[in-house]
Design a protein around this nucleic acid. Structure first.
Lengths: 331, 331
DNA sequence: GTGAAAGCGCTAACAC
DNA sequence: GTGTTAGCGCTTTCAC
């Protein structure tokens, strides 16, 4: 049977209270006693029961993270960063994959609610009102979603999109297709917002098609529709869709960037090794993950008024999938 | 304050025991009472405290998974599958990323030990003895690691490697480099085993170099050493290293597969979209993830003797990074 | 600086 | 079929 605090107490000839203090509030106990307790504890291989502890303290020492798709390297990069920061801070992490299903998202948060001190909600698809409702019962920090008054790590998607359009316009493109991501996604809204503004400014016509599932196979389908749309450039919602687009285009014998330019978004690792290497927007994923956890942890300690938002810049990475439109010479 | 079982009991005019039974052992309670209890519970938004429950039952309703690198799509695919199956079975999942550090691996398992009913250990780098020690305190299921008597989901790495060598030999390669993965990894040992056997059989000379970190940047370094080794084909430990190799080779202006053939291992999604598309071995990740969870769950219910191992086949996927060695015509 | 005791929210005997 | 009650392992007043 597992060793409990009583075993340690008996062995160390102190009360359970002292053992508890020796472990949790070292300053409240005599140096010598503490040393003895610690020695016995480690000798016995004592590990406090998180359940018992959390039952009384109300804290679990865990945080949760729910993402739309563990198959997307963007989200797993966020997860990697979150888990690293959490571990640094002594927290374990519960993970949920909603598979792009808003209902699952909510259920996952509810499912882990009582087991975590707070959760990082990544690019959620649920409504603001639902998010607010969830936040009433647990600490929530958003990542790539802005909701009035809530902690959030935000990456400048609109700005990234502006850079894409400026780049494309500079190359001479005048008519581009935007392969939309999920309707209810903040990132998609932001990207569209940046897109529209920049398009107007640069006199570029944008044809929006979709929405498509923001996955590889979504890109496959999207490519066909984009080709029919008679544009000179395809702006994909994210890298992984862009990869799908690239694959489909290659199958159809359409040259990128000769006949058609393509851009992605996220700068996933593989964007650099695909064929051809993808022009995309780099996202500060690492900082966002750490930032979200810091915000969450801060929210737990302080009562209320900590800093509530982290805004991160993005920047264009020009690789080989963008070039002047056909019929227009490179000078 | 959160609503407890007492609140429900009072509202429903029954004892807490009845509420408990209504929720956990429906058959022990009258239909009508049960209905009333459930109604009150949901009206009040009652959620049982997992801490309290697990304190007494000894079960947590969670499982853990620790992987060597969340940056590797192979492991995140496993994670995705594990989390999906766990959710189906009503379990939440804790995730740990050891960053290829055996010490961290052990610490992560210990850290989550008391919070989970069992853990899936993926491609661990620790020693058998350490694994056995860990298994004394918690249920463990291995993935891509075989240890006498322990539950494990295994993919036939050796067989995959045999297929690679046969393919390469068939193309006419006689001298190949193997870019080794982590020394302490079962997958690496298995791949080497298959490699050696097949090399002998086909009369192919294998030059082993490394070990390299099984990551993208590991592949970058490895490529340079492989080029110096005067071989006609490079067999990488895994896809992600192979992707690094491809990138480095392209930078150096070395044509793949014209001058040098390259193979990967895992058939990560991106292996199909890289430049050129990678010849690799496909791994039944989904089945392995589900299988590992099933094994683990089975182990928890049965007392002892459930089936203990799942063996999964692998198969070669020939794409465009392999061709006859230079100087040898394709017939 | 240390101990005794109450109790966190729940389940599982045990009665009835 | 339902209620009473004793803890699960821990932290935290409250005494001393």
């Amino acid at each position: 049977m597992p060793v409990t605090i009583r075993d340690v107490a008996e062995q160390a000839r102190v009360s359970v209270a002292t053992v508890s203090r020796a472990l949790s509030s070292p300053h409240l106990v005599n140096h010598v006693t503490r040393a003895r307790v610690l020695a016995v504890a480690s000798e016995l291989g004592y590990r406090p029961s998180p359940a018992a502890r959390s039952l009384i303290t109300g804290r679990t020492g865990n945080i949760g993270i729910v993402v739309p798709d563990l198959g997307n390297p963007f989200f797993t990069a966020v997860l990697k960063s979150v888990q690293a920061r959490a571990r640094e801070a002594g927290y374990a992490v519960l993970v949920g994959d909603s598979d792009e299903d808003p209902a699952a998202e909510e259920e996952l948060v509810r499912m882990m609610a009582k087991q975590v001190d707070g959760v990082v909600l990544c690019s959620p698809g649920i409504k603001d009102s639902q998010i607010i409702a969830l936040a009433e019962h647990n600490s929530l920090t958003l990542l790539n979603r802005r909701v009035r008054g809530m902690g959030a790590a935000l990456m400048d998607s609109a700005g990234g999109m502006r850079q894409i359009v400026a780049h494309l316009a500079g190359l001479g493109h005048r008519r581009c297709a935007y392969l939309a991501g999920p309707r209810n996604s903040w990132s998609n809204r932001e990207r569209r917002r940046g897109l529209r503004a920049a398009a107007k400014q640069h006199g570029v016509e944008i044809l929006e098609i979709g929405p498509f599932p923001p996955r590889y196979d979504g890109g496959l389908d999207a490519a066909d529709q984009a080709v029919d749309a008679d544009v000179t450039a395809i702006i994909a919602y994210n890298d992984i869709m862009a990869l799908g687009v690239l694959a489909r285009l290659r199958d159809r014998g359409i040259d990128v960037p000769g006949q058609l330019s393509v851009t992605g978004f996220d700068d996933v690792v593989f964007a650099a090794v695909c064929a051809p290497p993808l022009t995309t927007v780099s996202m500060p994923v690492l900082e966002a993950g750490r930032g979200a956890v810091n915000l969450l942890l801060g929210q737990l300690d302080d009562d209320g008024s900590a800093r509530t938002q982290v805004d991160l810049a993005t920047h264009l990475i020009v690789r080989d999938t963008t070039a002047p439109p056909p019929g227009r010479r490179k000078r």
